[in-house]
Design a protein around this nucleic acid. Structure first.
Lengths: 251, 251
DNA sequence: GGCCGCTGAAACAATTTGTCACGAATGCGC
DNA sequence: GCGCATTCGTGACAAATTGTTTCAGCGGCC
């Protein structure tokens, strides 16, 4: 997977992931594909299980959008089969009517689901979140469990969930502040979108105009920049999000 | 490891774990050992690295309490060596004075640390928590990732962090309520002490007279028992804690 | 029956989180 | 450089959540 910048096209920072849309309804297939392409994804489409399998054999796929209602083997079936051989993230589109579907989706190994009709924004948001998670999982699998992070004289102690300043004093952080800082030290020098921060820190998908992140950042800054004086640890990247500047040592 | 009930002797529900105390100071060794025995643990003691290694070869050990200040190779050294060959949970006792120790302990793979002088209660609480975590880790390693739990018609959806009642309606749970319920469904039919619940749900060690758990349980009950009518899902075990009664299906 | 410790839950307090609004900063087009 | 349009930062407020205290009720025990 290439690490190209893909600036404008991929507003949410998931460059060139390949998504497979599986739906028998040509119209939905078309709409969803277009939506995802507009958001910087590479998209393939399949109308049924057979086509899906073919595509999977042809090219690596980063995520599958799967409709539960398919002729022949249902989406449920496909999902279960898939899971036997692969760990690709799957997001299911469930029919509105029966609430049962919502639950059933998860049973078979889907990673998330969305009830029709869904807002385009939400589909994109959830896809972004899943892809981020998948990438995070990969990078974590390699690494040994990290117990603390050190940066600019500070230490973030993951075990105790405590932040210690350069003088050795414990600085109280709320749960939210801790989680956000943790997201930062785990990805220093990378620009994190508000969406990503919300997803990583709160395990939550952004709901439109969420300014929560800004406020939380503001509070966090107040705590870590007041103390040390060495400010500008968290840099604002206009139009995108935030970035953690200090060099971080994992331990 | 046998699963005996071990009622009275192990008030905190960690039957017969074997703990190794490593400290060169005979008095501390004695005091700590006595403390732990009084709390239902089987205890061995060692005065230095050599004795530690010998004990480890002789019998399986569930947790090590390690003083940083040891003659010869320091506690830090020992801890690092240990980690090469073993995953035993280690809790370090760090000297009061230099705050730096607190941090340093984690660097070398300790799972928790405690600054001297410490309260007996806190040492016991942290040991209990670590042992619980270790056991949990083992049982989880075997199982496939669970995405939802079903019980008495209800579903707890781990992915979305949602609770769905038998009618398919989503019941709003606060973070704390969700975490607590999750702790329950992950250990149905087992008595969970308040301490354990706090540890599992909040990742936090009990601080003396914590009635938070009771209150949280009370609120949780209100939500899940009001709706369904089928009450008594959470049984109070007088003098110990709480137990989740329904049969739970993992998916 | 009376006593004592434990639990349930209401009431209250503290903390945390989220929303809004407005001024400041930034980038852009001209 | 200037003005305009966005995007941010943050104080102030509101809502939600969490934690503490208190007290009544219950159960077991003598």
């Amino acid at each position: 997977m290439t690490e190209t910048a893909a600036a404008s096209a991929a507003p949410l920072g998931s460059p060139e992931a390949h998504i497979l849309v599986v739906d028998d309804d040509p119209q939905i297939r078309f709409l969803v594909s277009r939506l995802l392409r507009a958001n910087g994804y590479r998209v393939s489409a399949a109308a049924n299980g057979r086509e899906m399998t073919e595509t999977l054999q042809g090219a690596p796929v980063d995520l599958i959008v799967l409709d539960v209602m398919l002729p022949g083997s249902s989406g449920f079936e496909l999902c279960r089969e898939l899971r036997r051989s692969s760990a690709v993230p799957v997001i299911m589109l469930t029919a509105r009517g029966e609430e049962n579907d919502r639950i059933a989706g998860l049973d078979l190994g889907a990673d998330d689901y969305l009830a029709k009709p869904f807002s385009p924004g939400e589909l994109v948001a959830r896809i972004n979140a899943l892809i981020r998670r998948a990438r995070r999982a990969v990078s974590q699998a390699e690494a040994a469990p990290v117990r603390s992070y050190a940066f600019a004289g500070w230490t973030l102690d993951i075990v105790r969930r405590e932040l210690v300043d350069p003088q050795g004093t414990i600085v109280d952080l709320s749960t939210g502040e801790f989680d956000m800082l943790r997201a930062f030290v785990e990805a220093p020098g990378k620009v994190l979108t508000r969406e990503a921060l919300l997803d990583i820190a709160k395990n939550r998908v952004a709901t439109g105009f969420d300014r929560v992140v800004d406020v939380q950042i503001s509070r966090l800054r107040k705590k870590i920049e007041a103390e040390g004086g060495a400010d500008a640890m968290i840099k604002t990247v206009r139009g995108t999000g935030y970035m953690f500047l200090p060099q971080v040592e994992r331990r």
